[in-house]
Design a protein around this nucleic acid. Structure first.
Lengths: 239, 239
DNA sequence: TCAGCTATAATGTGATCACATTTATCCGGG
DNA sequence: CCCGGATAAATGTGATCACATTATAGCTGA
């Protein structure tokens, strides 16, 4: 039984309004995001169903949904795992983020009114606070919220689900990226973005978003360093 | 009963190897792609289950998967529909395609060996044949195959599922685009792309892909024209 | 004629079960 | 000691059923 790691998935109480499938989906999604379940670990429907104390059906649907978002991988044989990360794949995800998110930002910019600009400014301030406190989880969440608020200014946006998929695939490394960023914090790219928006300078906004993403994931530039992060994440989850 | 249109979904015999869920998924996906089921038409699990002569479960999973790919929309109330198309949304999808696919093409270019280059050349030739024959379905399929073959040259590609999602959302309009293109065929953008690849000119390749997508979807530039296509697609499916 | 309420039908959700296939365990022969 | 095959356990898949929720039709009253 020690081949399978214990799967320390949080209980996370369930809201009455949401369906069981949604709850299972959210729980598993968070588990992948936080790196609770490590890459390569085989997941079975019945095991998760027993662990979460639900029937097999909601688990089945949640697994398939996560697989559709590329958060999980359906192996040809009947096994479901968290995809392994490689330096090359990481680089591809990073570049895809830049391509998609700069595009989304430029498309959203014309729709940003003063109301939303204030929201973004406030989010940036809260990120600074969390930065001062060293609260990595909060930084990650607020950072995502900042990007989401920016892109969703576009009322016809269709890129958000695609971007969320990329975030999900980056998964636990986002957290590590934040830890790394906290040590070597250089420039506030969000303020650069806000400045670009104020000037309606689409190119500057794209550059700010690009820098923001690159800063956050810069440690992946060196394959060896990334590999050490991969290993570190495994040790973290085993602790 | 005439509120609900008859849902002329093709039978399309089922392969023995694939699961029922996969078959249902493929059937519904094709139905959406071909515009067999029209936007706004409410789909129910039991109705589809009866129509396809399977139990409710595979239908449920297939619907959720298609919803996860944004091919279907889960309304807050318990209804599933094919999303309505608007000129703005169409434009967003078109621009997102350009952003993602030019990126994917540029990233794939370094990996294109002579073997794959020959494959692309042959696909282009077959597209010319289909063009001469006026076979719209074959043109659409081969065109997608051309793009897929190009992007998947990158062994670490992670953009393909995202691109497929966009194609799926464009859905039946791809077919209409091909019909429109057949009438006003100007330049062979695929040959331009091949030429760019031969010269390892990433910028030229991006421009060729951009032009290819724009040519195909140019009719959407005029909102009124797009609207006429939307209406036409409805009449087509009712015929 | 139409608004509002009620009863009935329909729908999504989730649990349980049966079956075919795969994976794991164990044991004997090399 | 290790390899390979047979038996047993586990797994995914799909069908059926019960229940709560929602939509629809029908009816009453103004």
């Amino acid at each position: 039984m020690d081949k399978k790691s214990p799967l320390n998935i949080i209980p996370d109480p369930r809201d009455q309004t949401e369906t069981v499938t949604q709850w299972v989906y959210r729980t598993l999604r968070d588990a992948v995001m936080n790196g609770t379940v490590l890459p390569g670990r085989a997941l079975t429907i019945r095991e998760l169903a027993a662990l979460l104390d639900v029937s097999a059906m909601p688990v089945r649907e949640a697994l398939r949904l996560l697989a559709a978002e590329n958060a999980l991988e359906l192996l040809g044989n009947r096994r479901v795992i968290v995809p392994e990360m490689s330096a090359m794949k990481f680089a591809e995800l990073c570049e895809a983020r830049i391509a998609l998110e700069t595009h989304a930002a430029a498309r959203a910019m014309p729709y940003i009114d003063s109301r939303r600009f204030d929201d973004l400014t406030e989010l940036d301030a809260r990120i600074d606070e969390a930065q001062a406190e060293g609260d990595l989880i909060k930084i990650t969440q607020l950072n995502q919220q900042f990007h989401r608020t920016l892109y969703l200014a576009n009322p016809h946006d269709i890129t958000q689900p695609l971007i969320e998929s990329l975030w999900l695939q980056l998964g636990p490394f986002m957290r590590l990226a934040m830890a790394n960023l906290a040590d070597h914090y250089i420039a506030d790219r969000h303020k650069e973005a806000l400045s670009a928006i104020a000037k309606s300078d689409a190119y500057a906004l794209k550059m700010a978003i690009t820098s923001d993403i690159r800063d956050g994931l810069a440690f992946a530039a060196d394959p060896h360093l990334l590999q050490s992060f991969v290993i570190q994440s495994r040790q973290d989850t085993n602790a």
